[in-house]
């Protein structure tokens, strides 16, 4: 089992209950709160992530902006996204968003994954890939509303932020949170984090950000990584953070009721054939046709 100390709420491609023995104890839902207004873009969290998880990306090239590496990869599970925007004319704002897995309550990756147990969701809300069960099909990429999972070129397995499930499982906060020098990253129960965000939003509103707010999108059931945004009415400003993310209808059609129905359909077609034969027997030319054959 992935972490003996944590119950599993959901497991990919599994139709029976997951290990859930502590269910009455009500595991506390956790959340990481990313306060974009406090982030200085120092990337300490990016380094801490590499350190703790022991992943090292290729040394890349400067692409002309601060984003480095320029995208999430199988070795870079969190990346700072820098956006220069003018929400009000002539008032430049530098919005820096720490990108990575949002740990959705309703995870599209887990829904899409065909391999039993390659993606699990702990009862505390963390969505974790179990790479030893991953087959490298990339369905999680199609399922994710945030474009987060990446398949490694080295081993063809999917990787993403684990929310440091290994640390959280033993009572520590994620490595990124530990490293943040400004307190832009905080971690705790989801309830406490919403409380903390509320205070921050009051503060931001007082300082002139009338649309400050919490990003905890309900289209994916809420997330276990949340943002405090100065412009919560326009999340797209933050390097295209989706406004109302949800699992794509295409994915729901593909993975919803259609699959069990089609599976039953196949069984039905085969059975129909069998019983047809049992009922009417073979289709056969009659004896007379043999006899009347020309010479």
């Amino acid at each position: 089992m992935a972490l003996q100390t944590l119950d599993i709420q959901r497991r990919s491609a599994t139709t029976t209950p997951s290990p859930d023995v502590r269910q009455n104890l009500q595991t506390i839902e956790v959340a990481k709160l990313i306060d974009v207004s406090k982030c200085i873009g120092c990337k300490a969290c990016q380094s801490a992530c590499m350190e703790w998880n022991d992943v090292r990306d290729e040394i890349g090239v400067n692409v002309g902006v601060y984003d480095n590496p320029p995208d999430l990869t199988a070795d870079s599970w969190t990346v700072m996204r820098f956006s220069e925007v003018e929400v009000e004319k002539d008032k430049l704002e530098w919005l820096i968003r720490k990108d990575g897995c949002m740990h959705c309550a309703d995870p599209g990756c887990l829904k899409a994954c065909p391999s039993p147990g390659a993606i699990i969701q702990y009862s505390n809300g963390i969505v974790d890939f179990q790479e030893e069960h991953c087959i490298g099909c990339g369905y999680c990429i199609a399922g994710c509303p945030f474009n987060v999972p990446r398949i490694s070129k080295k081993d063809n397995k999917a990787y993403k932020c684990t929310l440091c499930s290994d640390r959280v499982g033993v009572g520590m906060e994620p490595a990124c949170v530990k490293s943040c020098p400004t307190g832009a990253l905080v971690f705790g129960s989801k309830e406490d984090m919403i409380g903390h965000a509320t205070g921050r939003i009051v503060d931001l509103k007082e300082r002139g950000y009338a649309n400050a707010g919490l990003y905890d999108p309900q289209g994916v059931g809420g997330t276990h990584v949340m943002y405090v945004l100065q412009h919560a009415d326009q999340p797209e400003l933050y390097h295209g953070l989706p406004k109302n993310p949800s699992i794509s209808v295409m994915v729901s059609l593909w993975k919803g009721v259609t699959k069990p129905l089609m599976s039953l359909g196949l069984g039905f077609v085969a059975l129909a054939g069998f019983f047809h034969f049992i009922k009417v027997g073979p289709s056969k030319e009659d004896e007379s046709e043999h006899e009347s054959e020309p010479h």
């Binding site: 491609a13 391999s115 089609m262």
Partner: peptide, 12 residues
């Protein structure tokens, strides 16, 4: 079919 539905995953 092995990837189609968990019911068939044993085919892998």
């Amino acid at each position: 079919l092995a990837l189609f539905h968990p019911f068939f995953f044993f085919l892998t």
